[in-house]
Amino acid sequence: MSATRAAVIGGFVVALALFGLLEVLARRPGSRIPTFGDVCAYVMQYEVGRVPVGRIGVFGFWWWVGWHFFAR
């Protein structure tokens, strides 16, 4: 494994750990930090006119993740 690949994998592991820590902090009683579900709900309700831009954006993000990490 090259050093570059190890650094990228390490970066993703650190980002995932920070995301998990943020979610744990958000779920404490009385916390003012929104949970991941709250953020997704807020983004998905965004509309421009009658076009659900938030839902399209979330769908596009999941499509991108699937294309780059799961399609091989």
Rank of each mutant, 00 (worst) to 15 (best):
S31Q: 08
A26H: 00
Y46D: 09
D38F: 00
A17W: 06
I9K: 15
L21T: 09
F36Y: 14
A7N: 08
A15I: 08
V39S: 04
V39L: 01
P29V: 07
F59V: 15
L25C: 08
A6R: 13
F36L: 11
A6S: 09
L25P: 05
F36I: 10
R28F: 04
V58I: 01
F19Q: 15
V51C: 09
I56Y: 01
G20D: 12
R5S: 04
R27Q: 13
L22H: 00
E47K: 09
Q45N: 14
G49Q: 09
G30R: 05
V39T: 07
C40N: 15
Y46T: 01
V53Q: 04
L21R: 05
A17P: 00
V39M: 02
E47A: 07
R27P: 13
G11C: 05
V43E: 05
R5N: 13
W62I: 11
I9T: 15
G30I: 04
V8R: 12
A26M: 06
A17R: 00
V58N: 00
A6P: 04
M44T: 13
I33S: 03
R28E: 03
V14F: 10
G10C: 05
A41L: 13
F61G: 05
V39Y: 08
P29Y: 06
A15M: 10
G57E: 09
G57F: 07
G37I: 02
L18F: 08
F59Y: 15
C40L: 14
M44E: 14
E23P: 02
A7H: 07
C40V: 15
S31L: 06
G57K: 06
Q45A: 14
I9F: 15
D38V: 02
R32S: 14
V24E: 06
G20I: 11
V39H: 01
W62E: 11
F19T: 15
F59P: 13
F36H: 09
A15K: 08
G37H: 06
T35C: 02
V51F: 11
P29W: 12
G11V: 03
G30Q: 03
F12G: 04
G57R: 07
F19S: 14
I56L: 13
V43Q: 05
A17Q: 05
L22A: 01
R28V: 03
G20N: 15
I33H: 00
F59E: 15
V13N: 14
R50M: 06
A41D: 10
V51Q: 09
F61V: 10
A26Q: 01
Y42D: 11
R28P: 01
D38M: 13
A41H: 04
E47W: 09
G49R: 06
A17T: 06
P34V: 06
R50I: 11
I9E: 14
R32Q: 11
F36W: 10
A26W: 00
I33N: 00
V48L: 11
A6L: 15
A26F: 05
F36C: 10
P29N: 03
A26Y: 02
G10D: 08
G37W: 10
A17L: 10
F59C: 15
P34D: 04
G49F: 11
L22K: 01
M44D: 12
A17G: 08
A41K: 07
E47V: 05
G54L: 04
G60M: 05
V43G: 00
R32G: 10
W63R: 13
F19C: 15
V8D: 07
C40I: 15
Q45T: 14
A15V: 07
